[in-house]
Design a protein around this nucleic acid. Sequence first.
DNA 1: ATCCGTCTGTACGTTAACGTACAGTGCGCC
DNA 2: GGCGCACTGTACGTTAACGTACAGACGGAT
Lengths: 236, 236
Amino acid sequence: MPTPNKRAPHTNRLIEALPRKDRQRFLAGCESVDLAFNEIVCEPGDRIRHVYFPTDSFISQVSPVDGHAKLEVALVGNEGMHGVALVLGVDVAPLHGLVQGGGAALRMKAAPFRRELNQSAALQRGMHRYIYVLMSQLAQTAACTRFHLLEARLARWLLMTQDRAFCDELHITHEFLAYMLGVRRVGITKAAGSLQAHKLINYTRGIITVLDRDGLEAASCGCYRADKATYDRVMN
Amino acid sequence: MPTPNKRAPHTNRLIEALPRKDRQRFLAGCESVDLAFNEIVCEPGDRIRHVYFPTDSFISQVSPVDGHAKLEVALVGNEGMHGVALVLGVDVAPLHGLVQGGGAALRMKAAPFRRELNQSAALQRGMHRYIYVLMSQLAQTAACTRFHLLEARLARWLLMTQDRAFCDELHITHEFLAYMLGVRRVGITKAAGSLQAHKLINYTRGIITVLDRDGLEAASCGCYRADKATYDRVMN
DNA sequence: ATCCGTCTGTACGTTAACGTACAGTGCGCC
DNA sequence: GGCGCACTGTACGTTAACGTACAGACGGAT
């Protein structure tokens, strides 16, 4: 699957933010992996073997309900990491990790990651702050899911995803979107149809193109901006 | 407001779990306060001055949407703490903290708390694990709010609250419940009416009595048990 | 060029909420 | 003892979703 217009930075912001010495040591402990679209990084209850730092990939955090995966509650791209539980001293994943956008990521095994964590105050600080952001996002998403109309939620989702895909074209079907947002496929068709009618996006058979980012922001709920503001404020 | 049948332990489980030496030092740094029902402990954006460890009080964490408080996303009683952001090195509260159940709490100022955190590995470990639990709860709540019927959500809420109130009688109006669950008051009246018709609860003018805990669990969604299971698994 | 499977569109009836309005009802207070 | 207020009950019409079913449309493979 080719991804045109892609201008991924091939770096992860959490790692970039480390002081040079820590960063070099950290990177030395990482391996480069390629995550495939739809790949499942972990299931709830699984032992966490690796932490992932997406560079041009991104991973959905999906909350299970009544036994099976149901609702995306957070999205992790090159601004974040997957596997924060390890930072908190728990090696069991609480959520599904589903690769939303295929691409590269850096990863590190659990044991060396813990060691790094002990050795680098900067790393610990960065991780902590990121966890704060993630928690804020979870709370935001809970409220958003409750109160905002599907069309606005969809717009938000597209913006969040585009930010992490570094690409105007998203390879996503309505079916998949429905799954992420916890609604029927038909609901997505309707909402997406409306966004398309307003010339904010365009789509055909699994490819959604963002045409008007500003318009999309206007159509989305404030949650998109709120999340972004929190990230910027906390992570600097 | 008298609270009959109340058998509060007057301790906080996070603090109790500390090794004796750490615990004694920690307690020495705490002051005892009385939280009044409906008191606002903090607003999002506020600087966090204290962390709170409820003993027989409990505090709702309410997520703001579009500017004002809207939806309860977590509940903190004697099993937890309020102000986890400080553990993550951020001194700005992300959520509203609203006292749901009046009563006693231990609290500590931010600066000494940070000092304790540096001195006690056990404290840090406990805090970390509690944050993991809280994140799991946030994700759970997001999905729950999306998928489960109001009656089930209400049942869950009553159970969660009773666990933290140590009392069969909860001082709560429909109005307030509606606010917490993000629905209309009328919706609560209907759902609560149904629970009462099934003899699971009883209520009159701001006092809800739990009659049949098991029945209530059966009427609630699995989220109640899921939360509890996570806590038990992670906190031991 | 045709087939087939995937993706999207449309079309029902159904439902659990919504907003709003107003009527009872019990408790506390003067 | 009765007044007032807070709390609860009921009663509309409205709506944004729901479940299900099936029809069109595009694209890659044979």
